[in-house]
Amino acid sequence: MESLRSMIGKRVELELSGCKTLLHGEFIDMGSDVLVLYSKSKYIYTPIHHLQHLRLYEELDNPPMDSSPDSKLDLANISYRKILMNSRGVFTEIYLGGSQSLHGYVTSIMNDYFVYHSPMHQTVYIPVNHVKYLIPYPPNTTPYSLDQKHFPVQPSVVALSRTMDQLLKKLEGQLVVFDLGEHPNKKGLLKSVDENIVQLVLAGGNDNYLHMDHIKSIQLP
């Protein structure tokens, strides 16, 4: 990926699969599976498998940067997994696609998913492959400017499994909400999970079937 590395230090435009808006910023580093942009005093980490295109951002449309990246930031040997590990307990924005971002904290990381606690969405289980980008907030920042005493990070309400398919199997017979409830056919009673096919009973009693790989998040109502 040396040709891509040649773009480091330049201002770029980034399009990600499933992302409604283009990202703009200074391309400051990359690892084997993650890209790092710096924009509006924030670091944006995006898994490289979502990359649709990265190209120079025309100077004419590109206002000057309002600050420079922190030279003390250790970006050596970065990886997506390492970034997730380092984000535990840090107020972070996570975007999964669709119309909204999540704002909260990574609390646990399992084999192929992690647990995220948000004051708006409570406990959310997120497959690692569906994160479009992750943005850590500055130190001592809290979601919605809540006082820390009003924002305890809650433990998961479900005993965690090592993998997402095991977790879904454990949730059989419970009401679930997939993908933050943005689609009416992705919330209902989780009836069964069989070879990655999830059977969901909708409010009217009809069955809906979906492949586990296309579930971006799981919540319990």
Rank of each mutant, 00 (worst) to 15 (best):
K72H: 10
V193T: 11
N208I: 00
N208Y: 07
L210I: 06
L160F: 09
K186C: 07
L160P: 05
S99K: 13
H117P: 05
Y43R: 03
S68Q: 11
Q166R: 13
Q174V: 00
I94T: 11
S192G: 04
S108L: 03
T21N: 13
N129M: 03
N208D: 07
T21G: 02
L4I: 15
F114M: 12
G173R: 11
Q52D: 11
I215A: 02
A159Y: 07
Y144F: 15
K169G: 15
F151W: 10
P184Q: 03
M110R: 15
D66I: 15
V177M: 10
L220W: 00
L134C: 14
E195W: 02
N206L: 11
L146M: 15
V34R: 04
P155I: 04
E15A: 12
L134F: 00
H150M: 05
L16M: 09
P119G: 07
Y113L: 07
N86E: 13
Q219I: 00
I215W: 01
Y95R: 08
G173N: 14
L75K: 02
Y113A: 01
Y38H: 12
Y113C: 02
D194P: 00
L171H: 10
L75M: 10
L22I: 09
K191H: 14
D74V: 06
F114P: 04
Q52M: 13
Q148W: 02
L200F: 04
E172C: 15
S217P: 01
I135L: 02
R88S: 03
G9H: 08
N196T: 12
L202R: 07
N196D: 14
G104N: 06
S17G: 08
G31W: 08
F91M: 11
M65A: 14
D29W: 06
N208Q: 09
K187T: 09
F178K: 03
L202S: 05
I83K: 02
G181T: 07
M120N: 08
V34I: 15
V36F: 00
T163D: 12
D33I: 09
K10Q: 15
S161Q: 14
I48C: 03
R5H: 06
I44H: 04
L102C: 05
N77E: 14
V158A: 04
G89W: 00
L75G: 08
E59S: 08
N129K: 11
L73P: 02
P138T: 08
D165V: 11
F151H: 13
L210D: 06
N208F: 10
Q52G: 09
K191E: 14
D165H: 10
G18W: 12
H130R: 05
R5C: 08
Y144L: 09
G205S: 04
L96A: 06
Q148R: 09
D29F: 05
P127G: 10
R11I: 01
I94S: 00
L37R: 01
Q154W: 00
Q52L: 14
H49K: 07
R5W: 05
Y38C: 01
F27P: 01
P136L: 08
R81L: 09
N129H: 13
V193F: 02
L146R: 11
D66S: 12
Y43E: 06
K191W: 06
P155R: 10
V193R: 02
M110Y: 05
E195N: 14
E182S: 14
L96G: 03
S217A: 14
